[in-house]
């Protein structure tokens, strides 16, 4: 009797307490060991839960605003057959649509996942212990980036699928293959965009010893681009506007000058890329003359053409991400390792 009781007890003990549990690493390779550990850390952390809740809220809110305006959006605009995509872009004016939400939330996700990547290890005193193991030094920073990107990918993919799934349930309209691919590329661009901010945050986490400082500086850069940057551009526009009413060429030249200035901001690149991808009727991102538009057949662009239109935006975003990561890589490799200082 007691034996049975004992057995039951241990069995229940195993179920109800997480004692006796150890982490087993799937890979033999140290790089993937670090990646697994980092992903685990992210997923077990409160910040991941908070970010997930934020994303869930985003999905619900943007679906709500899309649903309440979908009817009018369809009746107003009959030029496009892509009704499903409107779920991501339509708004009734009370709440921003999904793409705006992402361009707002994306940086937060990136910064939240990266701002203490390196300096927290340093402050906990684990960095010097880690560096004393027989692994190349760059494994640490590379693995951290890969792990955070994996987490971002999971988050964005989840969010995208959630939006699509709920959209299908609520509207009863299934997406066409082209719509699916457009959403797919949109999510891909979103990951790259979040990656830019993630890299920026990682760079600051290498640079600054205090996590608070690196978080603040990442947020400062984000605030600069989301608020002050357009103001500065406005000032420049007012100062440099041609005095006389000039010829068409000059006006177009000036217009593209201003647009290129705006494109310094990653969020501008992102919004141009995503708008083009999700609104197939967008045919050009620059100024267009009546002569150019004359004779054009009104209708949506095919996916290939839309992609071609935003190719440079996508390349720029990727380039920015790579440059920032390169900087943090060099900084990390050159940094003197002392415990906790």
């Amino acid at each position: 009797m007691t034996a049975v009781f004992k057995k039951l007890n241990t069995a229940f003990g195993r179920i109800f307490s997480d004692q006796q549990k150890t982490i087993s690493y799937r890979s033999q390779h140290p790089f993937w060991v670090i990646v697994q550990k980092e992903v685990m850390d992210h997923i077990n952390s409160w910040r991941f839960v908070i970010l997930l809740l934020l994303m869930l809220l985003t999905a619900v809110a943007s679906l709500y605003t899309a649903m309440s305006s979908l009817q009018s959006a369809i009746t107003e605009d009959t030029s496009t057959p892509f009704v499903f995509l409107k779920l991501f872009t339509a708004t009734d004016g009370t709440l921003p649509p999904f793409i705006t939400f992402i361009s707002l939330l994306g940086p937060i996700i990136g910064i939240a996942l990266g701002f203490d990547a390196v300096n927290s290890e340093r402050n906990r005193g684990t960095l010097s212990r880690l560096l004393a193991q027989p692994i190349p030094r760059d494994y640490i920073i590379n693995a951290k980036l890969v792990a955070s990107l994996l987490v971002v990918t999971i988050m964005v993919a989840t969010l995208g699928m959630l939006m699509m799934g709920l959209g299908i349930l609520l509207t009863g309209i299934p997406p066409m293959p082209e719509e699916f691919w457009r959403v797919f590329f949109f999510l891909l661009v979103s990951i790259v965009y979040i990656g830019v901010w993630l890299n920026l945050a990682i760079m600051f986490s290498v640079k600054f010893k205090q996590s608070a400082t690196s978080a603040l500086s990442s947020l400062a850069v984000w605030l600069f681009f989301s608020m002050f940057f357009s103001m500065i551009i406005n000032v420049i526009v007012v100062a440099t506007i041609p005095a006389h009413i000039a010829g068409t060429d000059q006006i177009i030249g000036y217009q593209s000058f201003v647009q290129n200035l705006l494109r310094i901001s990653p969020s501008q690149l992102f919004s141009e890329a995503t708008t083009t991808l999700l609104v197939p009727t967008v045919r050009t991102l620059g100024p267009i003359t009546v002569e150019q538009a004359y004779g054009a057949i009104a209708g949506p662009l095919p996916l290939g053409q839309s992609l071609l239109l935003v190719w440079s935006q996508l390349t720029c975003l990727l380039a920015v991400a790579f440059i920032i990561f390169g900087l943090s890589y060099v900084m990390f490799m050159k940094q003197e390792v002392r415990s906790r200082s």
Binding site: I23, N44, R129, S339, R340
Partner: peptide
């Protein structure tokens, strides 16, 4: 190498910390 003021991953158990080091050492 045991550094001055050694640090561990505080949210992991002692055993898990050791297993991580072991895994990094192949």
């Amino acid at each position: 190498y045991l550094p001055d003021e050694v640090g561990f991953y505080e949210n992991l158990s002692g055993l898990d910390n050791l297993l991580y080091t072991a895994a990094l050492n192949g």
